[in-house]
Design a protein around this nucleic acid. Structure first.
Length: 499
RNA sequence: GGGCCUGUAACUCAGUGGUAGAGUAUCUGCCUUUUAAGCAGAGAGUCGAUGGUUCAAAUCCAUCCAGGCUCACCA
């Protein structure tokens, strides 16, 4: 683009001028004494003692007035104003300063004072260039109102550009930075919580010869030396269960996981899944654990047990609601699916514009009715318990009703945040269930589970009764940072390539 | 995939058939406590792309590309 060339050309010319001054525009290192927040925090002492300070950061505003200039320098903690006078820094240094642009990264050394209007300012003794930028950086201006409120002008808001050039987004939109710092905090606290509860963090294969543990289509790749296709994992369940069989009683993995399916506000092809397994536990233990974990996380992030989403307030306190899927459907539809009467269910689905396919298990119809009529009504944290067996091939059958399994999903604000069950450990029943899944696949269900012979063999060596839990970390971060799109909590979300 | 909306300068946007605009940014000049610094001047565009209608298209039509919201599907 001609125009961009103009702006870049001008900056390259400045680069040349700087080199002609005998200055390296990309020096290898820099030592500074203070971050901006330290200067602000200890300003009184620094001013009283006339302490010399030095900072490093990016030029975010420039106000040049002949032989003196003001600018704002930003580091990771915020901005501070600098005041550069030709008579103070000397002619040569001021010449360098005149060649600087918005976005350049500089070192400033000087003393601190307050201007007429009271702004804390470093009056420079010396400026050093640390990195010259040659591409113009979008300009966002800020003004503080009388009430202390910050008005922002020309905000860098193009959503596509923000995702594609995340470095600019982080630079120009401070709250974006906060979201990812919170994400880091949440993950750190999850580890802390699980570690103190006796869980061991493990790493299992991302490249798997057989994929399993969830209903989803995988990405396929190829290993050249072995000359075999491998799948990017869609879950870590079957590997973690092998570890339970091996005697690692409590394990978890924060697993980057890949599903080759649709993308939207809630789905990115790669996402982070927490899975954990606890030997000698069941799904009730998982409910207790998940409650404790979430209450802990909400406290760490928001300071109390309440999250605000728009006008809604969500309160986290023990115990969460625990309601069965069937009871919830009855409550919200006046329809009772508890007898699994397939004809009645098909009729209900057709009447209510719910997709029906011949191969769908009866439980799938029930789940779809639940999804349509109940899910978005569940605002406060609610465990939906007891799922149909035919859509839960890895969960243990309920002792008092063979149509259902010991499984729950957690719903908050109408969306799912966790999925857990008492794990099926009967190797013969497990084989039977996976083979039924394989039949579904033959009938056209592309997301059905595949039979994992190695896993079935492992189960035959005996897995203790076990509770297992999966939590979508990206969505949890969305919830705790009040983000509406998964793209806002993933630094580099998947985008279509630019043609 | 369906519906609605958006795409114009580096950034934020105006412009609904008749010579491509504004503010910011950039460049030049003046300016040593400014702060969305100011004043004066200048440069900067494949109007998302391609085709069509028209004497004339940023504007109307078609197709495509990219994005957002939403519904459906999918965990």
């Amino acid at each position: 683009m001609e125009n961009e060339n103009q702006l870049i050309r001008q900056r390259k010319e400045k680069l040349q001028k700087i080199r002609e001054l005998g200055i390296n525009p990309y020096p290898p290192r820099c030592k500074f004494t203070h971050y901006t927040d330290e200067i602000k925090k200890h300003s009184q002492k620094i001013i009283e003692q006339n302490t010399e300070v030095s900072i490093a950061g990016r030029i975010r505003s420039l106000r040049n007035m002949g032989r003196a200039s003001f600018a704002h320098i930003e580091d990771k903690y915020g901005k501070i104003q600098i005041y550069v006078r030709e008579d103070k820094v000397g002619k040569d240094n001021y010449k360098l300063y005149k060649q600087l642009d918005l976005g350049d990264i500089i070192y400033v050394n000087g003393n601190v004072f307050r201007t007429k209007t009271g702004e804390l300012t470093i009056v420079a003794n010396k400026i050093e260039l640390l990195t010259k930028t040659i591409r113009p950086i979008p300009v966002v201006k800020e003004k503080e109102t009388e009430t202390g409120e910050k008005l922002r002008y020309d905000v860098f808001a193009d959503v596509e550009l923000r995702y594609r050039k995340r470095y600019l987004d982080l630079l120009l939109n401070k709250d974006v930075c906060n979201v990812f710092q919170k994400r880091a905090l949440i993950i750190k606290k999850i580890r802390e919580f699980l570690d103190t509860n006796g869980f061991c963090e493990v790493e299992t294969p991302i490249l798997q010869p057989v994929y399993g543990g969830a209903n989803a289509r995988p990405f396929i790749t190829h290993h050249n030396t072995l000359d075999i296709d491998l799948y990017l994992r869609i879950a870590v369940e079957l590997y973690l269960k092998r570890l339970i069989i091996g005697g690692m009683d409590r394990v978890y993995e924060l697993a980057k996981t890949f599903r080759n399916e649709g993308m939207d506000r809630l789905h990115n092809p790669e996402f982070t899944l927490l899975e954990l397994y606890q030997a000698y536990g069941d799904y009730n233990d998982m409910m207790d654990l998940l409650e404790d974990l979430l209450i802990f996380l909400v406290k760490e992030v928001s300071g109390n047990n309440v999250i605000k989403i728009g006008a809604k307030e969500i309160t986290f306190k023990k115990p969460f609601y625990r309601l069965s899927m069937i009871d919830l459907i009855k409550e919200h539809t006046d329809f009772d699916p508890s007898d699994f009467d397939r004809d009645q269910l098909i009729k209900f689905c057709k009447n209510h514009n719910i997709e029906y396919k011949e191969y769908m298990p009866t439980g799938k119809l029930i789940e779809q009715i639940f999804a349509k009529f109940v899910e978005n009504k569940l605002i406060q944290p609610t465990y939906v318990v007891d799922f149909p067996k035919d859509i839960s091939p890895l969960a243990k059958t309920k002792e008092d009703n063979p149509l259902f399994v010991e499984r729950f999903e957690l719903f908050i604000n109408g969306e799912e945040y966790g999925n857990a069950f008492t794990e099926l450990n009967d190797p013969i029943e497990q084989r039977d269930r996976l083979e039924k899944q394989a039949k579904l696949r033959d009938l056209g269900d592309v997301s059905a589970n595949v039979v994992d012979e190695d896993f079935l063999e492992a189960l035959e060596y005996g897995m203790p009764p076990t509770g297992g839990l999966g939590v979508g970390i990206d969505r949890l971060v969305m919830l705790l940072t009040n983000s509406t799109s998964i793209k806002d909590v993933i630094l580099f979300p998947q985008m279509k390539p630019i043609k």
